[in-house]
Design a protein around this nucleic acid. Structure first.
Lengths: 165, 165
DNA sequence: CCTCCTGAGTTCGCTTGATGAACTGTGCTC
DNA sequence: GAGCACAGTTCATCAAGCGAACTCAGGAGG
């Protein structure tokens, strides 16, 4: 056998990559521009032309990404009328979309650490109440704060099956 | 002027999208397969053939992604000799790569919540010490735990410039 | 009423990236 | 020294991303 030639690896057979939540999420928001659209949405951008201007993405791609995000319930189209203009619609985050916030924060934190020159980060996230910097932290249900990835044990769960043993 | 037609939006002029850490990070690990390669790396996969087998990615793409990740210092090539085999090299996470762990956890958490059927998640992350489930949490430097994205205030930082006004 | 303007797309030709199959090269075993 | 396994490379095909041009709808202005 050429499998299991080293220890410490999650057994390949024991978990089904096709159901992986990372892959699933990436299938939804992993295309080019999707996460940048969401970044702008979190910063308050709502209208097509504004997304287009700040991102510089091709309109066809932007149309496709916005439609996909709406189809997945991450954004929703809201009719809206500005004074002296005709009715239009804007794109707003749903709760499902808002729940992608940690993903953006994680990407941003890594970029701040490894890509910013001289710690000169382009944007800070602060606690709205107290003004202090916020960051992501791994905690467990017992209340322990984990120090890093090494404290995490991945446990594949075999899906419960019906009749066959 | 057609800018600033609504309030509550981070002023477009005040921050430079070209320096955005989200975009920068995505430029490094945002291509197809990159994050899935890292997912496997976190699960202990190290060798080319194993990445290829578990991911099912085309070899040419996998070669390119691994090379890119090595070039960025996220993985490193380590020479290695199994008994009875010739010397090969394997791909191992660096600290820079390990620091992408929160990104994967965030993606996985979202997928677990919104894509898993009947809460039937394919993998759990547990605290290695106590066995409890782990999750990401937003905390501020004052120690407050934030309840969500709405508690976060994005603050653009204008880069310090030298002479011109 | 007719024309211009703007937001929100759609269509189109081109370029880039992904895909799977076939091929290369190297060091070990038989 | 033939065969095998790993780690790629090359190649033809196919999908995706790109910028520019075009479409369509509704309001403003003359």
């Amino acid at each position: 056998m050429n499998s299991a030639h080293y220890a410490g690896c999650v057994s390949e057979a024991l978990w089904d990559r096709s159901r992986c939540s990372v892959a699933g999420t990436l299938a939804v928001i992993g295309e080019k521009w999707s996460l940048l659209v969401l970044r702008e949405a979190f910063l308050g951008v709502r209208r097509f032309a504004d997304f287009q201007r700040v991102l510089g993405a091709p309109k066809a791609v932007l149309t496709d990404r916005l439609t996909t995000l709406v189809d997945h319930g991450i954004l929703r189209r809201v009719p809206y009328q500005a004074p002296g203009e005709r009715q239009r619609h804007e794109y707003r985050l749903t709760q499902k979309g808002i729940d992608l916030h940690p993903t953006l924060v994680a990407l941003m934190a890594w970029g701040d650490r490894y890509l910013a020159e001289d710690g000169d980060v382009p944007m800070e996230l602060r606690h709205r109440d107290c003004g202090e910097l916020v960051h992501l932290s791994l905690v467990c249900d017992a209340g322990h704060e984990l120090s890093g990835a090494r404290d995490v044990l991945p446990v594949p769960r075999v899906p419960a099956q019906g009749g066959d043993g």
